[in-house]
Amino acid sequence: MAALLEVRNLRVEFPTRRGVLTALDGVSFDIAAGEVLGVVGESGAGKSMTGAAIIGLLEPPGRIAGGEIRLDGQRIDNLPYERMRRIRGKEIGAIFQDPLTTLNPLYTVGRQLVETMQVHLGIGAAEARRRAIGWLEHVGIPAAAQRVDSYPHEFSGGMRQRVVIALALCAEPRLVVADEPTTALDVSIQAQIIALLKRLTREKGTAVMLITHDMGVIAETADRVAVMYAGRIAEIGPVREVVKHPRHPYSVGLMASIPPLDRRVERLAQIEGAMPRLSAIPPGCAFNPRCPHAFDRCRAERPELLEAGATRAACWLYDPASEKHVPESAIHG
């Protein structure tokens, strides 16, 4: 069965006065129907950019300069605005980071749900209102029949994110792009929201692209995970493998930097150096200046995603033809 979403060699560029910046370069991945793909990486790695490209809402002057995005085999990266608009909300829902700012403060939550459903589902106002109340109940808003006429500011942050989830799912899309859905919330609320998102998307068989930098959320929720670095995918594979046995040296560093809870550590582990700016991505592998295993080929040639055990990693260490082909035990050793 073909994947629901296929992203192939996606390239996003920002023309600026001092030349063109490449924000995403050769990003490829699939999401199957009903699957949850976690996307992790540092700030600026291109996680949100990938999400924005998929829903067709890149901030100008950013533009898709190459590659393809297919939904159900149909290309959606080059659609005219009006056709893409009909896909947004209807086929691909979106959840944003900060529920305090994603709801229009001047309209009741009911009105925002009703207008979304009326646009996509072609139902009457009364039916849409009935369903809006149903959705609010569904996402766990108490006294939904009364709260449907409340304004966003009358809800707490966690409740607002529930409303946002209802808005993203109310037209029953097949894919939801959730961009840091819990980052702005209290830790105690985060688990509830993730559980809600998991439950609803499982019920409806909705695929999720879950963008976050919280490895706990990923481990809890995702089926597979993609690690991004400097606008490229460094490693992609089943979540257990990537978390427990990361193959790419960057993933190794990323996982090692999660502080362990079961023992005291003198220093928190960190990866030396910083992610390069978009204007100064080194040739070859973008990670090579920070990589403890870098060798000549890493500085000259850019690695494609290579089979590395149960995952695929963009690292020359896993190319049998490399002069420094290292078995995985050497990295973890």
Binding site: L103, N104, H120
Partner: peptide, 16 residues
């Protein structure tokens, strides 16, 4: 603002 981006992400027509 985010709520305008979100309104677009919900696929509302430009006029709305």
């Amino acid at each position: 603002t985010d709520y305008i981006k979100f309104a677009r992400a919900r696929g509302l027509p430009n006029r709305a």
